[in-house]
Design a protein around this nucleic acid. Structure first.
Lengths: 180, 180
DNA sequence: TCTTTGACTGAACGATAAGTCAACAATAGC
DNA sequence: GCTATTGTTGACTTATCGTTCAGTCAAAGA
């Protein structure tokens, strides 16, 4: 609902109808529309941050862990595309509760920082292409985000394999099989 | 206005106040809120499509023309970030006039098709990495879109050079200067 | 000067949506 | 069975926003 219609475009009546309950019951559980949205955003960002931290604590090479992380992210996007879209709404729109925007901002900062550390590590053993790690992390994050949008909009193209192609562009030591 | 607040989140009163005119005058020029939005989207998509077609008619190698196009796109994004955001709103949200959504859909299809032709051409003379052209065009387009979002949200990172790094990942014959 | 045309305004209207509340049902404890 | 607590409803209130419209003002033409 919030994913496709945005915060302002989503009606409490609509949520109630979709959930099969009455509007009054919604206000029994949540204090306001803002609170519903914030709860949603908090849940989404919390899960994502935990995933990134989990990848960070994993054994193995940087490129390998980064690839695992991207696979996890891609899987999540395929399974729950609307979750990402809600976060995107909170990221790009001014017409959302401030708390939600702040949550998403810190999410973006944290994930970028973690990816940058992966890249720094991967560059030292030549697994990942050269360049400023922060810069590359920003680039990779943006690309993933773009792919996620495309995927969520159910464009005819599968973005799972696209994510795979993307990570391949960033890594070096992979065998020269670029087709598929 | 539409760029940051979305279609539903933007108020006619707000537009009128920002333009320094009365609400009535807006309805003197436009028939409805939908019409305002559609006009905006049409203007944005028309300009973008023309740019892509222009790049297609240019002389020179495929990679060179593709790089020129990306530079133009990046410049446009820097100069008018909100223009892109409005189009993004129309692309990801259901809460916008149908006509606007259709305009953006055809925009996405056309640009991807043109980029795919560039890639096909560039692959034949080894300028561009291997892989399914449609697939790569989709990937490149998504990444550009992601970078555009990051840029429009004025994240501390400059996405102009990021776009440059991105196109460098896609091309092959460039000298091995990957840093900076 | 009189009329016409078009830019322009702001009050008013109708619709819609967030939030409230009094009442009702169900369940549990006694 | 009775009472207290919790879950649940939908009509009501209140405010906002898109849209309309009656009317003002100024310039142009006759």
């Amino acid at each position: 609902m919030f994913a496709r219609n945005g915060y302002v475009g989503t009606r409490i009546d609509g949520i109630a109808a979709a959930a099969g309950i009455s509007k009054g019951l919604i206000y029994h559980y949540f204090g306001s529309k803002e609170e519903i949205f914030n709860t949603l955003i908090e849940s989404a960002t919390h899960g994502t941050i935990r995933l990134y931290q989990q990848a960070f604590g994993l054994p193995g090479g940087a490129a390998e862990r980064l690839r695992w992380l991207m696979e996890q992210v891609a899987t999540g996007l395929v399974e729950q595309p609307h979750m990402f879209m809600v976060v995107l709404q909170a990221f790009v729109s001014d017409a959302v509760p401030q708390e939600a925007r702040e949550l998403v901002s810190t999410l973006a900062a944290k994930t970028r920082s973690i990816v940058a550390q992966f890249i720094t590590e991967g560059q030292q053993n030549g697994e990942i292409v050269q360049g400023d790690p922060e810069h590359l992390a920003f680039l990779l994050g943006s690309c993933i985000q773009g792919l996620a949008v495309a995927k969520a909009m159910s464009t005819p193209m599968p973005s799972l394999s696209a994510a795979d192609s993307l990570i391949r562009l960033f890594t070096r030591s992979t065998p020269p099989e670029s087709g598929d």
